[in-house]
Amino acid sequence: MADYSTNEFRGGLKVMLDGDPCSVVENEYVKPGKGQAFNRVKLRNLKTGRVWERTFKSGEKLEGADVMETDMEYLYNDGEFYHFMEPQTFEQVQADATAVGETSKWLKEQETYVVTLFNGAPLAVAAPNHIELEITETDPGLKGDTAQGGTKPATLATGAMVKVPLFLSTGEIIKVDTRTGEYLGRASTK
């Protein structure tokens, strides 16, 4: 991979730091009048998700990271690995539990996910912001109770637990925000 100098650091640039692939979050150029210029850079470690802050001398270089974000379809879990497929080439990759992380509770077959590949292997899996899922378990619905804002817990087909309004029942399909776990409404199609 090519090397990138600090003045090429833009949000989203993928570089290697301490052996881990990172994504540049923020790059602040600091130049005291007549002194050495430096850059305060925030980078997200793509393996751990942690944000690092580092100070580089301006013009210092980091090696680019071979990181690609690809839309892939979720196929199945074989007990150990999660399998995804690139819909155009049908190429398949297997992601381990670390790469899938919290996203595991939103994994639905045939749904499209953003898989971050590092040197061709899955590093992280991100769910679409909104997803439609079936309620597999919740207390019986209270008919007519649509006005009040009360909620109850519901388990969804993927195993995620969300809070839903009291009038919903098992078997209904709802739309959920995967970033917050918030109930957004009944699914538009059934």
Partner: peptide, 8 residues
Amino acid sequence: ADEKGQRH
């Protein structure tokens, strides 16, 4: 040359 940023 080489000075560009939010305040440069």
